[in-house]
Protein backbone atom coordinates (compact mmCIF):
# COMPACT_ATOMS: atom_id res chain seq x y z
CA UNK A 1 0.00 0.00 0.00
CA UNK A 2 2.85 2.38 0.88
CA UNK A 3 6.40 1.82 -0.26
CA UNK A 4 9.37 4.04 0.45
CA UNK A 5 12.39 3.51 -1.75
CA UNK A 6 15.63 4.97 -0.42
CA UNK A 7 14.02 8.23 0.65
CA UNK A 8 16.42 11.03 1.55
CA UNK A 9 15.70 14.49 2.89
CA UNK A 10 18.39 17.07 3.51
CA UNK A 11 18.26 20.52 5.12
CA UNK A 12 21.31 22.43 4.01
CA UNK A 13 24.24 20.33 5.17
CA UNK A 14 22.16 18.19 7.50
CA UNK A 15 20.67 14.95 6.23
CA UNK A 16 17.54 14.45 8.31
CA UNK A 17 16.46 11.25 6.58
CA UNK A 18 18.91 9.05 4.67
CA UNK A 19 18.07 6.18 2.34
CA UNK A 20 15.05 5.00 4.26
CA UNK A 21 13.12 2.16 2.65
CA UNK A 22 9.87 0.83 4.04
CA UNK A 23 7.04 -1.40 3.03
CA UNK A 24 3.60 -1.02 4.58
CA UNK A 25 0.92 -3.52 3.62
CA UNK A 26 -2.82 -3.26 3.96
CA UNK A 27 -3.78 -3.89 7.57
CA UNK A 28 -0.33 -3.26 9.03
CA UNK A 29 0.28 -1.43 12.25
CA UNK A 30 3.84 -0.23 11.87
CA UNK A 31 5.68 1.53 14.64
CA UNK A 32 8.53 3.95 14.06
CA UNK A 33 10.69 4.75 17.05
CA UNK A 34 13.95 6.52 17.58
CA UNK A 35 15.58 9.03 19.88
CA UNK A 36 14.87 12.73 19.56
CA UNK A 37 16.16 14.13 16.30
CA UNK A 38 16.21 10.72 14.63
CA UNK A 39 14.20 12.03 11.68
CA UNK A 40 10.84 10.46 12.50
CA UNK A 41 8.72 13.53 11.97
CA UNK A 42 10.75 14.53 8.92
CA UNK A 43 9.96 11.13 7.44
CA UNK A 44 6.24 11.71 8.12
CA UNK A 45 6.48 15.12 6.52
CA UNK A 46 7.96 13.55 3.41
CA UNK A 47 5.36 10.79 3.25
CA UNK A 48 2.42 13.14 3.80
CA UNK A 49 3.64 15.70 1.28
CA UNK A 50 4.91 18.54 3.47
CA UNK A 51 8.47 18.01 2.26
CA UNK A 52 9.62 16.99 -1.16
CA UNK A 53 12.12 14.13 -0.92
CA UNK A 54 15.60 15.02 -2.21
CA UNK A 55 16.08 11.48 -3.43
CA UNK A 56 14.11 8.26 -3.50
CA UNK A 57 10.46 7.53 -4.17
CA UNK A 58 7.29 7.49 -2.10
CA UNK A 59 4.80 5.09 -3.67
CA UNK A 60 1.21 5.17 -2.49
CA UNK A 61 -0.79 2.32 -3.99
CA UNK A 62 1.82 2.13 -6.72
CA UNK A 63 1.72 5.82 -7.57
CA UNK A 64 4.74 8.05 -6.97
CA UNK A 65 3.47 10.82 -4.73
CA UNK A 66 6.84 12.38 -3.86
CA UNK A 67 6.40 16.14 -4.17
CA UNK A 68 2.59 16.05 -4.33
CA UNK A 69 1.01 18.53 -1.91
CA UNK A 70 -0.55 17.16 1.29
CA UNK A 71 -4.14 17.73 0.19
CA UNK A 72 -3.67 15.54 -2.86
CA UNK A 73 -2.12 12.81 -0.76
CA UNK A 74 -5.00 13.07 1.69
CA UNK A 75 -7.45 12.58 -1.12
CA UNK A 76 -5.52 9.49 -2.13
CA UNK A 77 -6.33 8.05 1.28
CA UNK A 78 -3.31 8.95 3.41
CA UNK A 79 -3.48 11.49 6.19
CA UNK A 80 -1.68 12.27 9.40
CA UNK A 81 -1.80 13.91 12.80
CA UNK A 82 0.74 16.39 14.09
CA UNK A 83 3.10 15.93 16.98
CA UNK A 84 2.56 19.51 18.00
CA UNK A 85 -1.20 19.43 17.71
CA UNK A 86 -2.74 21.85 15.25
CA UNK A 87 -6.39 22.24 16.18
CA UNK A 88 -8.51 24.88 14.46
CA UNK A 89 -8.43 26.70 17.77
CA UNK A 90 -11.34 29.09 17.36
CA UNK A 91 -13.71 26.47 15.99
CA UNK A 92 -15.75 23.96 17.93
CA UNK A 93 -14.64 20.34 18.19
CA UNK A 94 -17.55 19.39 15.95
CA UNK A 95 -16.57 21.94 13.29
CA UNK A 96 -12.97 20.76 13.44
CA UNK A 97 -13.96 17.21 12.68
CA UNK A 98 -16.59 18.26 10.18
CA UNK A 99 -13.97 20.05 8.09
CA UNK A 100 -12.24 16.71 7.79
CA UNK A 101 -15.48 15.00 6.78
CA UNK A 102 -16.24 17.66 4.15
CA UNK A 103 -13.36 16.32 2.12
CA UNK A 104 -15.41 13.37 0.97
CA UNK A 105 -18.92 14.57 1.90
CA UNK A 106 -19.66 17.80 0.03
CA UNK A 107 -22.97 18.38 1.83
CA UNK A 108 -22.54 20.18 5.12
CA UNK A 109 -25.39 18.35 6.85
CA UNK A 110 -24.02 14.95 5.87
CA UNK A 111 -20.54 15.97 6.97
CA UNK A 112 -21.91 17.13 10.31
CA UNK A 113 -23.59 13.78 10.91
CA UNK A 114 -20.43 11.97 9.97
CA UNK A 115 -18.44 14.23 12.29
CA UNK A 116 -20.79 13.43 15.19
CA UNK A 117 -20.26 9.75 14.58
CA UNK A 118 -16.48 10.07 14.47
CA UNK A 119 -16.47 12.24 17.59
CA UNK A 120 -18.41 9.58 19.46
CA UNK A 121 -16.02 6.89 18.23
CA UNK A 122 -13.14 8.88 19.62
CA UNK A 123 -14.83 9.57 22.92
CA UNK A 124 -15.13 13.30 22.29
CA UNK A 125 -18.93 13.33 22.34
CA UNK A 126 -19.32 15.44 25.46
CA UNK A 127 -16.97 18.10 24.06
CA UNK A 128 -18.53 18.51 20.62
CA UNK A 129 -19.53 22.11 21.24
CA UNK A 130 -16.35 23.15 23.06
CA UNK A 131 -13.84 25.44 21.42
CA UNK A 132 -10.88 23.36 20.33
CA UNK A 133 -8.38 25.67 21.97
CA UNK A 134 -10.09 25.18 25.33
CA UNK A 135 -9.47 21.42 25.37
CA UNK A 136 -6.80 19.92 27.62
CA UNK A 137 -3.86 18.35 25.83
CA UNK A 138 -5.09 14.76 26.09
CA UNK A 139 -8.32 15.63 24.33
CA UNK A 140 -6.54 17.72 21.75
CA UNK A 141 -4.55 14.66 20.74
CA UNK A 142 -7.81 12.78 20.36
CA UNK A 143 -9.18 15.62 18.30
CA UNK A 144 -6.18 15.30 15.97
CA UNK A 145 -7.05 11.63 15.49
CA UNK A 146 -10.78 12.30 15.09
CA UNK A 147 -10.23 14.99 12.49
CA UNK A 148 -7.92 12.78 10.48
CA UNK A 149 -10.32 9.86 10.72
CA UNK A 150 -13.15 11.99 9.40
CA UNK A 151 -11.37 12.15 6.05
CA UNK A 152 -11.82 8.35 5.86
CA UNK A 153 -8.17 7.51 5.32
CA UNK A 154 -7.01 4.05 4.35
CA UNK A 155 -3.62 4.77 5.86
CA UNK A 156 -3.25 6.96 8.92
CA UNK A 157 0.02 8.38 10.23
CA UNK A 158 0.00 9.13 13.94
CA UNK A 159 2.80 11.40 15.12
CA UNK A 160 3.38 10.96 18.87
CA UNK A 161 -0.25 10.93 19.87
CA UNK A 162 0.71 9.33 23.19
CA UNK A 163 3.41 11.75 24.29
CA UNK A 164 2.57 13.83 27.30
CA UNK A 165 -0.51 11.83 28.30
CA UNK A 166 -1.25 10.53 31.78
CA UNK A 167 -1.68 6.74 32.20
CA UNK A 168 -5.48 6.87 31.92
CA UNK A 169 -5.40 8.95 28.75
CA UNK A 170 -2.67 6.72 27.39
CA UNK A 171 -4.77 3.62 27.95
CA UNK A 172 -7.69 5.24 26.20
CA UNK A 173 -5.76 6.20 23.11
CA UNK A 174 -4.03 2.82 22.87
CA UNK A 175 -7.46 1.19 22.99
CA UNK A 176 -8.70 3.56 20.28
CA UNK A 177 -5.75 2.78 18.00
CA UNK A 178 -6.25 -0.96 18.54
CA UNK A 179 -9.93 -0.66 17.70
CA UNK A 180 -9.26 1.33 14.53
CA UNK A 181 -6.69 -1.23 13.49
CA UNK A 182 -9.12 -4.07 14.21
CA UNK A 183 -11.66 -2.33 11.99
CA UNK A 184 -9.20 -2.58 9.12
CA UNK A 185 -7.35 0.75 9.16
CA UNK A 186 -3.67 0.64 8.26
CA UNK A 187 -1.53 2.70 10.61
CA UNK A 188 1.98 4.01 11.00
CA UNK A 189 2.65 5.22 14.51
CA UNK A 190 5.61 7.34 15.58
CA UNK A 191 6.45 7.25 19.22
CA UNK A 192 9.35 8.39 21.30
CA UNK A 193 8.27 6.25 24.22
CA UNK A 194 9.25 2.69 23.37
CA UNK A 195 7.20 1.05 26.06
CA UNK A 196 3.83 2.11 24.69
CA UNK A 197 4.86 1.03 21.25
CA UNK A 198 5.88 -2.42 22.40
CA UNK A 199 2.33 -3.14 23.40
CA UNK A 200 0.86 -1.80 20.20
CA UNK A 201 2.86 -2.43 17.06
CA UNK A 202 3.59 -5.76 15.44
CA UNK A 203 6.50 -4.48 13.47
CA UNK A 204 8.81 -1.69 14.48
CA UNK A 205 11.32 0.36 12.53
CA UNK A 206 14.03 2.13 14.48
CA UNK A 207 15.46 5.36 13.09
CA UNK A 208 18.69 6.87 14.29
CA UNK A 209 20.38 9.91 12.75
CA UNK A 210 17.95 9.64 9.85
CA UNK A 211 18.78 6.04 9.02
CA UNK A 212 16.99 2.77 9.61
CA UNK A 213 19.11 0.86 12.12
CA UNK A 214 16.73 -1.97 12.90
CA UNK A 215 13.44 -3.44 11.85
CA UNK A 216 11.51 -6.32 13.34
CA UNK A 217 9.12 -7.56 16.00
CA UNK A 218 9.05 -5.63 19.29
CA UNK A 219 10.90 -8.37 21.19
CA UNK A 220 13.63 -8.45 18.56
CA UNK A 221 13.99 -4.70 18.67
CA UNK A 222 14.44 -4.47 22.42
CA UNK A 223 17.30 -6.96 22.28
CA UNK A 224 19.04 -5.33 19.33
CA UNK A 225 22.36 -3.89 20.53
CA UNK A 226 22.28 -1.08 17.96
CA UNK A 227 18.92 0.02 19.28
CA UNK A 228 20.16 -0.07 22.84
CA UNK A 229 23.17 1.98 21.77
CA UNK A 230 21.00 4.51 20.05
CA UNK A 231 18.89 4.95 23.12
CA UNK A 232 21.90 4.96 25.42
CA UNK A 233 21.53 7.67 27.94
CA UNK A 234 17.83 7.49 27.40
CA UNK A 235 17.24 4.34 29.42
CA UNK A 236 14.54 6.07 31.34
CA UNK A 237 12.48 5.99 28.19
CA UNK A 238 12.76 2.22 28.01
CA UNK A 239 12.15 1.95 31.69
CA UNK A 240 8.87 3.79 31.56
CA UNK A 241 7.15 0.47 30.80
Amino acid sequence: MLTLERVTKRFGGLTAVRDVSLEVREGDLLGIIGPNGAGKTTLFNVISGYYRPDAGRVLLAGRDVGGEPPHVICRLGLTRTFQIVKPFGNLSVLDNVMIGALTHLPRVAAARDEARRVIDTCGLGPYAAARARALPVGLRKRLEVARALATRPRLLLLDEVMAGLNPTELGGIVALIRRLHAEGLTLIVIEHIMAAMMRLARRIVVLHHGETIAEGRPDEITRDPRVIDAYLGEEFVLAEA
Binding site: Y50, R80, P87, L91, H104, R147
Partner: peptide, 16 residues
Protein backbone atom coordinates in the same frame (compact mmCIF):
# COMPACT_ATOMS: atom_id res chain seq x y z
CA UNK B 1 -12.03 28.65 8.21
CA UNK B 2 -9.76 25.63 8.51
CA UNK B 3 -7.15 27.28 6.29
CA UNK B 4 -7.35 30.46 8.35
CA UNK B 5 -6.92 28.60 11.62
CA UNK B 6 -4.11 26.33 10.52
CA UNK B 7 -2.96 25.88 6.97
CA UNK B 8 -0.90 22.77 7.58
CA UNK B 9 -3.74 21.01 9.35
CA UNK B 10 -6.16 22.02 6.59
CA UNK B 11 -3.83 20.54 3.99
CA UNK B 12 -3.69 17.27 5.91
CA UNK B 13 -7.47 17.15 5.69
CA UNK B 14 -7.44 17.33 1.91
CA UNK B 15 -8.02 21.06 1.52
CA UNK B 16 -6.11 22.82 -1.27
Amino acid sequence: AGVREDEDAAEALGIA
